[in-house]
């Protein structure tokens, strides 16, 4: 479990276990006005982060990246290369910090764990029948247990959007609780659970806020926007609503939950806009890889190029960085 750094000291309130009780809980959340969210996002997007602030922001963003490969064609070799890059993103500049974690399919966890043993870089695995989650619970739990047993330190699971949209909140809740239990490990701390809401399939921001609270109540260590397989993925507005949710959840329960936008964040500008939203919505407490991650693959190279531009004054070309 993450530290509870919030101001409140109340124990997490475990809601009663019926659909009605969960609905009452979620319905009590304030609504979200779409135009208002978009206006706030647009306002925050005008923040100018330049020069020294930009250099710090780039390093912070690099340290928050979950460097991800989730392709059918992934190979052990590709994952090993990714791990090398995760540890030392720019071989020509050792001042570049490592990323937060690599994120791979369960069958490649062992490869990543071996490559990253005794390093600060975590191994995250999308488990529980990623990306659709459309498998019997037993299968999803087994998927999770294998990944954990193979050494994954973080598990990214996707909720049952169908059940959520149908109002079967209990099913969603119970599955998260079950996967969370499957994250336990006898030989060490449990894997952190990131719960993917797949916001592109939820209808609107009210649902994003409610799904966030449902996941947090069920024990999510992180709430994550998207699998990356559904469009739209991590829009700034969705991330903003989720940042409000973790802020409010900590105020109410005392437990701090992390946020991970994933998918669609490709440029340094996108990443910095996310950091600005974190800073001005959830607050500076979340400006830390423990509490904010960016799920991305191509983003890292852009961060590296922008970083090189700041340190050397000239733009390197994309071919100066490994394409994976």
């Amino acid at each position: 479990m993450p530290d509870t750094t919030g101001p409140a000291t109340r124990a997490p309130s475990a809601p009663a276990h019926s659909n009605a009780a969960l609905r009452a809980l979620l319905d009590s959340l304030p609504g979200v006005d779409e135009a208002g969210v978009h206006a706030r996002v647009a306002d925050l997007a005008t923040r100018s982060v330049k020069t020294t602030a930009k250099a710090r922001a780039i390093d912070l963003a690099i340290s928050m990246v979950d460097l991800t490969t989730l392709e059918g064609a992934d190979t052990p070799g590709k994952v090993r290369a990714l791990c090398t890059k995760a540890l030392l993103p720019d071989p020509t500049d050792r001042t570049v910090p490592p990323v937060a974690a690599v994120c791979v399919y369960p069958d490649l966890v062992r490869v990543a764990v071996r490559a990253l043993e005794s390093t600060p870089v975590g191994v995250a695995s999308v488990a529980s029948a990623f990306p659709a989650g459309r498998a019997p619970l037993e299968v999803r739990l087994l998927d999770t247990r294998y990944a954990v047993a193979d050494g994954a330190t973080e598990i990214d699971m996707v909720i049952d959007r169908g059940a959520f949209l149908a109002g079967d909140y209990r099913k969603v809740y119970d599955e998260i609780v079950a996967v969370k239990e499957a994250c336990d490990r006898s030989d060490g701390p449990p894997a952190h659970l990131k719960v993917i809401l797949e916001t592109g399939e939820l209808a609107g921001y009210d649902a994003v806020r409610r799904a966030s609270w449902l996941a947090m109540h069920a024990g999510a260590d992180f709430i994550k926007t998207s699998t990356g397989k559904v469009s739209p993925a991590a829009t700034p507005a969705v991330t903003l609503v989720m940042l409000q949710a973790v802020r409010d959840f900590r105020a109410e329960t005392g437990r701090q939950v992390g946020v991970k936008p994933a998918g669609g964040i490709r440029t340094t500008k996108d990443a910095i806009r996310n950091l600005v939203m974190v800073n001005e919505t959830a607050g500076p407490d979340w400006l830390d890889p423990h509490w904010f991650r960016i799920g991305a693959s191509s983003l890292l190279n852009d961060l590296l190029m922008q970083r090189a531009k700041l340190t050397t004054g000239t733009y390197p070309g994309p071919d100066y960085y490994s394409a994976d």
Partner: peptide, 12 residues
């Protein structure tokens, strides 16, 4: 903004 947030903005 005395914490990490203070680092985010430089005069612009």
């Amino acid at each position: 903004e005395s914490g990490p947030g203070a680092l985010l903005y430089a005069p612009a």
